[in-house]
Design a protein around this nucleic acid. Structure first.
Lengths: 155, 155
DNA sequence: TATCTTTTATTGCAATTGCAACAAAATAAC
DNA sequence: GTTATTTTGTTGCAATTGCAATAAAAGATA
């Protein structure tokens, strides 16, 4: 059997799972302790904040954040109830729903970032030099690009 | 304000979150598609399988896997209902509960590993050379050791 | 010893998530 | 143009998770 997992890679995989879980849950704890909503709300607000008009279709949020469809529906539902986003039907596609960030939503995002940033430093960035962070980021970026298949030489 | 997050580290953080999420959810999907229970069951079975007598106290599972206490209670409850573990009171501490893996549990773990291993290769290991995997693993291991505080020189 | 605190585990209830079914509109196929 | 397929979004219901309260035993303190 080819393509077996070698020990080095297995160790790296475990380090990835454990390390990420530890860092992320510490960070989420800090946000919660500061009275903020969960990180996924921040991520959605960020995507919206960065987009032209501060608006995106549900399906785009779904695609960018790898969320289940119903999660997007319900997350935006709750965020709308909190006045962080508005939702309106899409002009050129009657199936579509467009979520737009509100001023309150933008304020919350900025406010969360202060805590989030400190927490990232504390639980992640402080472990690395700039050079190391560059290496780490480059290696990890491969997991998001292409996904399942490794880069292949189709020559 | 000192200790601000620089761009390199921020990029690395995002790569960590995205990359891990992508790889892990692909892997979980493969396990589910093969009809297996979620990965956390595997992790518990592995911890038990490796332990002497194939048994651990709830609190040890909790500590090793960074799970909430009630999660451990309920996970083991369901796993026991499936005949994968037994539970019995702890001899020298009447508060304690000891979970022990059953033969069926050991078989399931081995069986899951076949799928899990292939999936790790596909969605993670295939992206890296052995050298790269070593570097990546070493860098990520820092997140699990020590946790919040960076290694400091108290001289 | 009696009392206070910490550790360990469980449980009721509310919130969230996941599954599967559904519906409406857009797109493709014929 | 009509029919089939795909895309997009929602929803009821079941399963899971999280919070907060509870309880019992162990350990610490006086």
């Amino acid at each position: 059997m080819t393509n077996l997992l070698d020990r080095t890679a297995e160790t790296a995989w475990i380090a990835l799972i454990r390390g990420q879980q530890r860092a992320l849950s510490s960070i989420e704890d800090e946000l919660k302790a500061a009275g903020f909503p969960p990180l996924v709300w921040y991520d959605i607000l960020l995507e919206l904040d960065r987009s032209p008009e501060g608006a995106l279709r549900n399906r785009d949020i779904e695609a960018r954040m790898l969320l289940a469809r119903y999660s997007v529906t319900r997350l935006l539902e709750r965020m709308a109830a909190d006045g962080l986003v508005n939702r309106r039907p899409c002009d050129d596609d009657a199936r579509g729903v467009i979520a737009r960030i509100t001023p309150k939503g933008r304020r919350l995002r900025r406010s969360m970032w202060k805590t989030y940033e400190r927490a990232i430093v504390r639980h992640f960035a402080a472990q690395y030099t700039k050079k190391e962070a560059k290496i780490l980021g480059d290696l990890l970026a491969r997991l998001s690009n292409g996904g399942a298949a490794p880069d292949r030489d189709w020559g």
